[in-house]
Amino acid sequence: MTDRSALQVQLERGITALGLTLPAEAVPRLLDYLALLERWNATYNLTAIRDPVEMVTRHLLDSLAILPYVQGETLADLGTGPGLPGIPLAIATPGRQVLLVDSNGKKVRFLREAIRALKLEGVRALQSRVEDVEGHFDCITARAFASLADMLAWGGHLLAPGGLWLAMKGKAPDDELVDVSPAFTVRTIHALAVPGLGTAERHLVVLERANT
């Protein structure tokens, strides 16, 4: 086990490098989430990343890097897996209604335990295929679980008018842009600098419903 104080220093430095200011209780709660994920991961294999130091970078800071682009009162995190980026975003900005969606039963069981243990108010976990989810959300996050075209085909109906779709990608998905439905407009593509990630590329594609 990596010393929690060392992980806290790493996390706090990363948050500072991202230019973020989080609530006072956010860092301990993020570390509590990481400890819970590490514990469950030993049995349920929720993520291929097992080193806590790497988890801080690739899970927590990677998720928090998109925080400046999150908007609105409601958020759906599609294909959330063990809660990424949804849980770190919910901890960083409490008060937003967050729906975590995944089709994998063991991951949703973990999500429900994390919501209970971390007392995440306004956060719900739903075991479902994306295309079967109902409702409208001001912001939708999706962390590279499919191509842009497939993401929007499966979950585009969930984006409220004026809402933003935040698609997290590794390399810039230039080859995927031509296949985006004309019902949606690519607003911007941001290159993200995730502290500790080195030369690995991270991009955020921001889409909105086209005015028709």
Rank of each mutant, 00 (worst) to 15 (best):
L197H: 11
Q8C: 13
E121V: 08
M55F: 07
M1H: 14
V206W: 01
N211M: 13
D77Q: 05
D138E: 03
Y69Q: 14
I49W: 05
S103W: 00
P94N: 05
P82G: 12
T212Y: 14
N41A: 12
A149R: 06
R39W: 10
L111A: 04
D3G: 10
P52K: 03
M168H: 04
L164H: 07
L37M: 08
E54Q: 14
S103M: 00
A114D: 00
L60C: 00
V56I: 11
T212H: 15
T21I: 15
A92F: 02
E208S: 14
R13A: 14
T47M: 10
L148F: 04
L100S: 00
E121I: 08
L204E: 04
T188E: 15
Q127C: 05
T47V: 11
C139W: 01
V53H: 15
L84I: 09
I49P: 01
L22H: 02
L20Y: 07
N104L: 15
E12K: 10
A210F: 11
H136S: 15
L120Q: 01
Q97I: 08
R39K: 15
T2E: 15
G14A: 10
L118Y: 06
P28F: 12
E208K: 10
G19N: 11
L7W: 09
S128E: 03
G196E: 06
A17S: 12
E73Q: 14
R96C: 06
V123G: 05
P182V: 06
R58F: 07
S103F: 03
P182W: 07
P182T: 06
E12I: 07
G72W: 06
D174Y: 13
P173N: 06
A65S: 13
L100N: 01
H157N: 07
G163T: 02
E208T: 13
T74L: 01
T93H: 14
L36W: 08
V101P: 03
A24F: 11
V108D: 05
N104F: 12
D3T: 11
L84R: 00
T188I: 10
V178H: 15
G196N: 08
R13K: 15
T188K: 14
V178L: 12
L111Y: 00
L111F: 02
P182Q: 07
A17C: 11
L158R: 02
F110W: 05
E25F: 12
T74K: 05
D3Q: 14
L111S: 02
A76V: 05
V205L: 06
T188R: 14
L152D: 00
H203V: 04
L46N: 08
R187N: 12
D32I: 09
V108G: 00
D51G: 09
S181I: 03
L164C: 08
E121A: 13
A92H: 00
Q97G: 03
V56N: 06
L78D: 00
H203K: 07
V180Q: 02
A48S: 14
G135H: 05
A167W: 01
E73L: 09
K169I: 06
E131G: 01
G95Q: 10
L11F: 07
I115A: 04
I115R: 03
D32Q: 13
R109T: 13
K119Y: 13
L60R: 03
N41F: 08
L192P: 02
